[in-house]
């Protein structure tokens, strides 16, 4: 028996929005720890890693580990049938292993809907991602990062990110010319969410495809802040924290000189 109840049901809409450009299907792994998902996009350039800890749900029960192969397009159709203020419960029954049920309850309990969705048999290949100490970790407002990625993609297809202790510089070049955006570390801020904080061991310069970074910024509504973790010649980690529950992380392989 698996049952996970989320009063803030709209969170699922935001999570699906944050995966839709990268994934069409994925396996949700459910255990007593929580629900997680790890999947690469079809070109194997980026990876989505979602963690929703069990203690972040309003009720959570998982008697035995369960892998649910989900067509995300179908799940999106079903989740769109919920209202933003609905309580969402995800249920899977051991006696009926080929389906998952989504139940939506209005706040006043007057409307209750349930949708049963067929699960898929997916070949999932989990990548082993080692714990890494990154050379640079930048925390900045998620909306600012979204704006930078959008603006840089007006200029070119890739962005070079150069991070020093003074700040972070984004540069792009293309047929029309070049663009640079430099953001300094905040001197002092009233609101933590508005801060730009750079933790640096060594300066790093890396180049990434903007197409993917723009896909990642679909997660902007999940969190006020985003963190960018970088080391020379390894994948970038873009993390959006999901308050009191976990995170949505994206990994992106760098562009490398041949």
């Amino acid at each position: 028996m698996f049952e996970a109840r989320l009063v803030q049901g709209s969170l699922l809409k935001k999570i699906l929005e944050a995966t839709k450009d990268l994934l069409t299907e994925a396996t949700f792994d459910c255990s007593s720890t929580g629900m997680s998902l790890q999947a690469m996009d079809s070109s194997h350039v980026s990876l989505v890693s979602l963690m929703l800890r069990s203690d972040g749900f309003d009720a959570y029960r998982c008697d035995r580990n369960l892998s649910m192969g989900i067509n995300l397009t179908s799940m999106t159709k079903i989740i769109k049938c919920s209202s933003n203020d609905d309580v969402v419960t995800i249920k899977a029954d051991d006696n009926n292993p080929d389906t998952v049920t989504f139940m939506f309850e209005s706040p006043n309990q007057e409307k209750v809907s349930d949708f049963e969705m067929k699960l898929m048999d997916l070949d999932t290949e989990h990548l082993g991602i080692p714990e890494t100490d990154y050379s640079v970790v930048v925390k900045m407002p998620a909306q600012e990062f979204q704006r930078v990625c959008r603006d840089m993609s007006q200029i070119g297809e890739s962005v070079t990110i150069c991070c020093t202790k003074d700040g972070i510089r984004f540069s792009a070049s293309g047929d029309l010319g070049t663009g640079n955006i430099k953001i300094a570390q905040s001197a002092n801020v009233d609101k933590e969410e508005e801060a730009v904080v750079i933790e640096m061991q060594e300066a790093v310069t890396l180049t990434f495809a903007l197409r993917y970074l723009n896909f990642f910024t679909r997660a902007t509504s999940l969190s006020g802040q985003v963190s960018l973790s970088m080391s020379p010649e390894v994948p970038l980690v873009v993390e959006y924290k999901i308050a009191d529950m976990g995170y949505m992380r994206y990994y992106l392989a760098p562009k490398i000189e041949d």
Binding site: M40, S43, H44, V45, S46, L47, E125, H126, L127, G128, I129, P130, S158, T207, A209, V234, P235, Y251, L252, A253, P254, K255, I256, E257, D258
Partner: peptide
């Protein structure tokens, strides 16, 4: 020009 690398070049597979 820099080429796009793949994640599988960095992380161990299944």
């Amino acid at each position: 020009k820099a080429g796009q690398s793949k994640l599988t070049a960095f992380f161990a597979g299944p």
